[in-house]
């Protein structure tokens, strides 16, 4: 005898993510899930983004690492609230971890939360956290062939940040090939060329993020999700 389920396999994660999303919408908070390899420049990009947008938006950061508070401390040193999640071994963040982190933040006083996912080009791809957008960073020293080798993360990202463009002269990075493969995987997401530590290209990336935050605020106010 057949028993019908039609149930998502990641049901629990999806349900908690939807709860996170509803709570965030109540306060009109935009959440960015930032993914990349270890060392690609997630934290540097977050710090550069904070400097570009802190006069316009109230920002907090949720840091995800296997261990240590290194990244949360770096963010707090810039006067921005940060919550550190230590997964203790899990290679990606999930929505139950985000739910706990959100409970430690003053959501009514925030416009933007940046989630720095665990350094990993594979696992964060399939786990919805309740974010508004997933964005990934690929850094020039990693090589232009990464989209071919790790297609999933490029496909789910709403924007792709190419970081450390100031190191192009040192590495054999074929930018045309990189762009061609990214486009074949993801025809519409913008590619932002930046140097997070030197500031190059950060304004254009920040402008895109700002327009997404403003879009959310307008739509959540309109839909009566928040006062």
């Amino acid at each position: 005898m057949e028993i019908d389920l039609s149930k998502p396999i990641l049901d629990m994660n999806e349900r908690l993510a939807a709860e996170n999303r509803a709570e965030l919408d109540r306060h009109g908070v935009f959440v960015l899930d930032l993914m990349a390899s270890p060392g690609a420049g997630k934290t540097s990009t977050i710090l550069a983004t904070i400097e570009a947008l802190r006069d316009r938006y109230r920002i907090a950061v949720i840091e995800g690492d296997i261990a240590s508070k290194v990244d949360a401390e770096k963010v707090k040193a810039h006067g921005i609230p940060a919550v550190q999640i230590n997964t203790g071994g899990a290679c990606h963040l999930e929505s139950d971890m985000i739910k706990r982190a959100l409970s430690a933040l003053p959501l009514a006083e925030l416009d933007l939360i940046i989630v720095e996912n665990v350094g990993n080009l594979v696992c964060p791809t399939d786990f919805y956290l309740g974010e508004n957008a997933k964005v990934m960073i690929l850094s020039v020293p990693e090589g232009h062939d990464k989209p071919q080798k790790y297609p999933g993360i490029f496909q789910v990202s709403e924007a792709v940040i190419l970081n450390k463009v100031d190191t192009m002269p040192i590495f054999d990075f074929d930018e045309d090939e990189f762009t061609r493969v990214v486009r074949s995987l993801n025809p519409t997401s913008p590619i932002f060329r930046i140097s997070a530590t030197k500031g190059e290209g950060v304004d254009e990336w920040a402008k895109w993020l700002a327009s997404r935050i403003d879009e959310l605020k307008a739509s959540t106010a309109e839909e009566g999700k928040r006062p």
Binding site: M1, E2, I3, D4, L5, S6, K7, P8, I9, L10, D126
Partner: peptide
């Protein structure tokens, strides 16, 4: 990523 259905031999 979905569980569609189950089959049981039980009545």
């Amino acid at each position: 990523l979905q569980i569609d259905s189950l089959e049981t031999p039980d009545e």
